[in-house]
Nucleic acid binder design. Structure first.
Length: 296
DNA sequence: CCTTGAACCTGGGCGC
DNA sequence: TGCGCCCAGGTTCAAG
């Protein structure tokens, strides 16, 4: 579930613990996730103070006081959790409940903050996540961040911008919106949700929202508004938490209950008065959920 | 250029 | 209880 709203929720959940804390040690319990951890990562971050937690698209950015930024992507199943208080192997009050997935705790930030020590633990069963580091001054040149499109919540995303990107494209709307070079941060869930809100069929060619003169049509205006709204609503709801995702504070999310299309195959469409039934199709190897009755 | 499919991994759910 | 199969939030390659 780590699409943009979930990563933003994680960022907000981690910030109170991490911002201002000193990294006493970064414990890497294996040498790689999806990719190897960068050479010298542990040495470079040890003793550094965390000045801010940021986010770009689906990437969490940990800014250190020496100008280094740790870049973290959660992949499909990555999550962080916080353990407060001293570490103790002996039975007693300082022991925390250990999850059965402890074997997937791959990276542990041992922190010293104003209120004592704590650990921020990165867990990722599938190991599709990865970490990198960069100089903050050249962050946008990092291979993972280079070329990313605008954030869906910012002013850069407009109907005119999308019209420029979609002009002449036979590509289905679903795939076009998943392209991180066009908009950065949307994933399978929120693309389905945004198209449902827009009453647009995921299979429609992207160019059908562009006029002959290259201007956005009214459906494009609606699509852009829907993207903004669905992301804002999801962030507000604290991010969704399907399956193995856990929010930074250890609690489960709740937004999954308000999906309108995603994962609702064969269930009634929630568009008022529609009466249709949500269908599932496969596009580019990914499930797409939509209502054939009201999405045209 | 475009689009699709496989690959990277583990675990949960389901049918038998 | 167990086995085999299918499915899953993402991204990057290779191939057509």
């Amino acid at each position: 579930m780590p699409e943009l709203p979930e990563v933003e929720t994680v960022r907000r959940g981690l910030a109170p613990t991490m911002e201002g804390a000193r990294i006493a040690r970064l414990e890497l319990r294996r040498k790689d996730l999806r990719f190897p951890f960068p050479d010298g990562l542990e040495a470079r971050v040890t003793g550094r103070r965390i000045v801010a937690l940021g986010r770009r698209a689906k990437y969490l950015l940990i800014d250190l006081d020496d100008g280094t930024t740790i870049i973290s992507h959660l992949g499909m199943s990555g999550s962080f959790r916080i353990e407060a208080g001293p570490l103790s192997d002996a039975p007693g009050e300082f022991n925390h409940p250990r999850s059965k997935d402890e074997k997937h705790d791959h990276a542990i930030f041992h922190l010293e903050g104003p209120n004592g020590v704590s650990r921020v633990i990165y867990n990722d069963p599938r190991r599709f996540g990865f970490m990198d580091m960069a100089q903050r001054s050249e962050l946008e040149l990092n291979p993972f961040l280079f070329g990313l499109g605008p954030e869906p919540t910012g002013n850069e995303l407009s109907a005119a911008y999308l019209a420029e990107r979609f002009a002449g494209k036979a590509q289905p709307l679903k795939s076009a919106l998943l392209d991180q070079k066009t908009i950065a941060g949307l994933g399978n869930i929120y693309v389905c949700e945004a198209l449902w809100r827009s009453h647009l069929r995921p299979t429609r060619a992207a160019a059908t929202l562009v006029t002959k003169t290259g201007k956005p049509n009214k459906q494009m205006d609606l699509l852009v508004a829907s993207i903004r709204d669905v992301i804002a609503d999801a962030i507000k709801a604290g991010g969704s938490s399907l399956r193995d995702h856990i929010q930074a504070d250890g609690s489960l999310g709740y937004f999954q209950h308000s999906f309108s299309a995603y994962d609702r195959e064969s269930l009634p469409c929630r568009t008022p008065g529609c009466g249709g039934t949500v269908a599932r199709i496969v596009q580019a190897g990914r499930s797409t959920f939509y209502c054939p009755a009201c999405q045209k």
